[in-house]
């Protein structure tokens, strides 16, 4: 499966990663190579095989409904690149 530059640009946008123009060509080639390589999976017949979600053979463990966490705004905000008045700050969003 060959991917083209537009597809790579679309996926990069979806993943919010800026790819400089001069790298797009090479990246397109690498992704194509990887996708061609994984293509060999299509030769296997997997009809009726359940997809595996987890190797852990148990049901989801649940916790009790109790307030045991939070109330640590200092820890939450400690590493923030930009913050103000107890909030995180980001470039203004226009909805």
């Amino acid at each position: 499966m060959a991917v083209d530059k537009d597809t790579v640009a679309r996926i990069a946008k979806l993943a919010r990663i800026r790819i400089p123009e001069e790298q797009q060509e090479a990246l397109t080639g690498e992704l194509t190579e990887i996708l061609n390589w994984v293509e060999q999976l299509s030769e296997l017949d997997t009809d009726g095989v359940e997809p595996m979600t987890s190797v852990v053979a148990m049901s989801l463990p649940k916790r009790e409904d109790a307030v045991t966490d939070g109330n640590c705004a200092d820890k939450v905000l400690k590493n923030a690149p930009e913050g103000a008045h107890g909030f995180f700050a980001v470039p203004k969003v226009v909805e």
């Binding site: 966490d69 939070g70 109330n71 640590c72 705004a73 820890k75 939450v76 905000l77 107890g86």
Partner: peptide, 8 residues
């Protein structure tokens, strides 16, 4: 208060 009811 902002970010007071936030866990890691």
């Amino acid at each position: 208060e902002p970010n007071s009811q936030v866990s890691l």
